[in-house]
Amino acid sequence: MREDFRKIDVSSCLHKDVAGSLVACASLGEMMRHEMAHGCNNDKMEQLLGSLDSAIRQALQVVRELSEGLFPPVLKAFGLNVALQQLVRGITENFTGSLVLHINGDEAKLDLATRLNLFHIIQSLLTRCVQHEETSWIEVTSRSTSERMEITIDHNGGEEVWGEAADGGEMALVQARCLVPGITMELAPAGPVGTYRIFLVAQAFPSVVQA
Rank of each mutant, 00 (worst) to 15 (best):
G97D: 01
I121E: 07
P73C: 14
F119D: 08
N81K: 15
E93K: 01
S142Q: 12
H15M: 01
V209L: 09
H120I: 10
P189F: 01
K109M: 01
A77E: 04
V74Y: 00
V161F: 08
Q131E: 13
D17P: 00
E147L: 13
S54N: 08
A37I: 01
R2Y: 14
P189C: 04
C13N: 05
N94F: 07
S21V: 04
F71R: 15
I56H: 00
S124P: 01
S136M: 00
V193I: 05
D167N: 12
I122A: 12
S144R: 10
M32D: 15
Y196N: 02
M31F: 05
T135Q: 02
A19W: 01
Q47W: 07
V140N: 05
E133Q: 06
H38T: 05
G90D: 08
G168V: 06
H155K: 05
E46W: 14
P73S: 12
A24W: 01
A204E: 00
A83K: 05
V74S: 08
Q47N: 05
V193F: 00
S54K: 06
L60M: 03
M31G: 14
N94Q: 07
L112G: 02
A165D: 14
M32C: 11
M36R: 03
L99R: 02
E164C: 08
G191C: 00
L126F: 03
D17I: 02
E133N: 08
Q58R: 09
C25I: 15
G50H: 15
R33E: 09
S51P: 00
T141R: 12
L118D: 00
G39S: 03
R6T: 13
R57C: 11
I103N: 08
M32V: 06
E150T: 08
E93M: 04
A188W: 06
E159F: 13
S51K: 15
F71D: 11
L84F: 15
M36D: 03
D111L: 05
M31L: 14
V82M: 11
L66I: 07
G169L: 07
S27Q: 13
A37K: 02
G69M: 03
S27F: 02
G157V: 14
Q203V: 13
E65W: 12
C129T: 07
M149F: 10
L49T: 07
E68F: 11
I91T: 04
S11H: 02
T152Y: 08
T96P: 00
L49C: 12
E30K: 03
T195A: 00
A26W: 09
S142D: 15
L80E: 10
D9S: 06
R33T: 12
R197D: 02
R33S: 11
L173W: 13
E3G: 04
G158E: 11
L75G: 10
F205I: 03
M149E: 03
K7E: 09
L118C: 02
S136K: 01
G50W: 15
L28W: 06
L125Y: 03
L75C: 13
S12M: 11
M36F: 10
A172I: 09
M45A: 11
E65V: 05
P181D: 07
T152W: 10
A188N: 08
A83F: 03
D111N: 13
L60R: 11
Q123A: 10
N104A: 03
E147I: 04
Q85A: 13
A211C: 02
A172M: 10
K76Y: 11
G157N: 01
E107S: 08
E3F: 15
F205K: 13
G29H: 06
I138F: 01
V82S: 06
R148C: 08
E133P: 05
F119T: 05
